[in-house]
Amino acid sequence: MSKLEKVLYGNRLKPFLFLVGLILMLPFVVKSSYIFTILILIGIYSIVTLGLCLLIGYAGQISLGHAAFFGIGAYTSGVLTTSFQLSPWLALVIGMVTTFFIAYLIGIPILKLKGHFLALATLGINIIFYILILGLNQLTGGAAGLIGIPSLSLFGLPLTDKLFFYFFVWTAALLVLLLSLNIVRSHVGRVLRSIHDSEIATETLGVKVENYKVAIFALSAAFASLAGSMYAHYITFVAPPTFYITKSILFLIMVMVGGAGSVWGAILGTTVIMFLNEIIRFVGHTYFGISGEVEIVVYGLIIILIMMFLPKGLMHVISKPIQKLKQKKKVKIKSHKDMISQKGV
């Protein structure tokens, strides 16, 4: 890592290694297969929320429709592997490429809209997609869903084993994280944040703002599609309700709760919300004897409270003390700064 990079963006190696260590360690600690499933789902959803974080937190464009892209991936994989006996890997790639282009084409007109209107348009796309998968029942199985999606296998190793699948999912998630970090820690990251702050000024500096917005929208859609394919092969069954607006909203909430301003926030938010869901369900069942969707009350309440009191998300809360620690080091950076500034003249 060059000195300049450190000055501009801080260190990324430490948190990355920490995450890798955590992922490697968890299988030794966690014995419950139930928690393992949750960890796998966190990996899958993190891939979606990472892309969404680039779109929302960096470029400042909202989407209430990413469950549709998640669904395109899942259904492409599902349909191609069951009805057409295609290799799951090929199906996964086809899904991603298709989603990318669909999102790109939709993105060109839609990203001209702002704020509430963009939210409404993406929401509309999600509803249209949902109705389409219900309606095209010859292909998608309609409301009954699509069953018998094969599991993935890698080098002859069937990924039916939870441990294998866990590592597979998290390897993919780490790769997506790495790509996202690369984007964020470059001029593109600055461009996206500039768009967030002032589109007009960004354009004046020579940036074709629309191109960037559409590219990030399509990229985040492709990530969602990848996650969707993995989901389909893991659960081996897909049905329309999984891809309704409620899921889009869930993704959005994960990003915001974690802190949209940082890609690490996406993973944190996904983890927190997933466990929160489970805890609410567990407590509700065991201590209050309530069932069904009752947990949404608590869930709604927590979201309101977090957004009211921690609008920058949990990541912001965590990184603040770390930042304070770094204040001490600032003297060092300053001398370093002087060094380069002198060289600049």
């Binding site: 009350v297 869930y299 709604g300």
Partner: peptide, 22 residues
């Protein structure tokens, strides 16, 4: 920001729907 307001009203919507269910 608009995004936070959207999420808060979605949170309210979820909360009220949940109360309705209970």
């Amino acid at each position: 920001s608009v995004i936070i307001l959207i999420i808060i009203t979605i949170g309210v919507s979820t909360f009220l729907k949940g109360m309705g269910l209970i």
